[in-house]
Design a protein around this nucleic acid. Sequence first.
DNA 1: CGAAAATGCAACCAAACGGTTGCATGACTC
DNA 2: GAGTCATGCAACCGTTTGGTTGCATTTTCG
Lengths: 120, 120
Amino acid sequence: MSPRTSPACHAGTQDPLLRKAVPVFAALGDETRLSLVALLCAGGALSIAQLTAGTDITRQAVTKHLHVLAEAGLVRDVRQGRERLWEFEPSRLEEARRSLDAIAQQWDQALLRLKARLEQ
Amino acid sequence: MSPRTSPACHAGTQDPLLRKAVPVFAALGDETRLSLVALLCAGGALSIAQLTAGTDITRQAVTKHLHVLAEAGLVRDVRQGRERLWEFEPSRLEEARRSLDAIAQQWDQALLRLKARLEQ
DNA sequence: CGAAAATGCAACCAAACGGTTGCATGACTC
DNA sequence: GAGTCATGCAACCGTTTGGTTGCATTTTCG
């Protein structure tokens, strides 16, 4: 190891709120899926056929992406006749947003502590 | 297609700010990497050996994750003697945070429009 | 100098991912 | 009832990903 202060453990010992955000970030970490989320977020509920139009990929590919988003809790489907409409589900994204806020805040506090130590 | 209003195009025509956030989300979409970010964010700069200790994966695996994070601009390395210290780089994460804010805001506005239409 | 510590580099591997094609099914519409 | 529109399901495929092992390189320290 190193002569400097021990960093201690961190393995799976992380914040459960943060761990919960992992699949959400993973779902958003794809350009197609992120644009699907943005689309559903702006408009209302759209069908698979509607979401596929304007894309250069197959309907089945879009379906797969929607399932990934649904698994992450970012999107919800509503059966309506022969169509299946998909709509945005804001709660998980809100949680992810708070996770980023928490990390940023942690960073700010670290900077403050550093500054205080320097001025001391 | 569908008898309802056309959803128009959206293919690669999305917000460049949003598109820029994709690799950041992809980098955060892994439990190991997210905890690395959280660690570096809380403390200062840490070496690979320090970051590996407390993890159940290999040093080389950690190195790869650090490279992914660096590629996404979330982390920066500083050579120091025989060590290589890694530190958090807040700007990209800040941008990603604003992207989520933008999406959430878009959703809120859509809800407001819907409400206004109902009350009209 | 020589050993040990911290890292770099490259090959390799299984599993997951993003995407496709082909075909079956369910639900309107005439 | 027949056709068609919107989906579902499953197999398949190339590439990326997350991880490993083995060995070379650089730097510190006695």
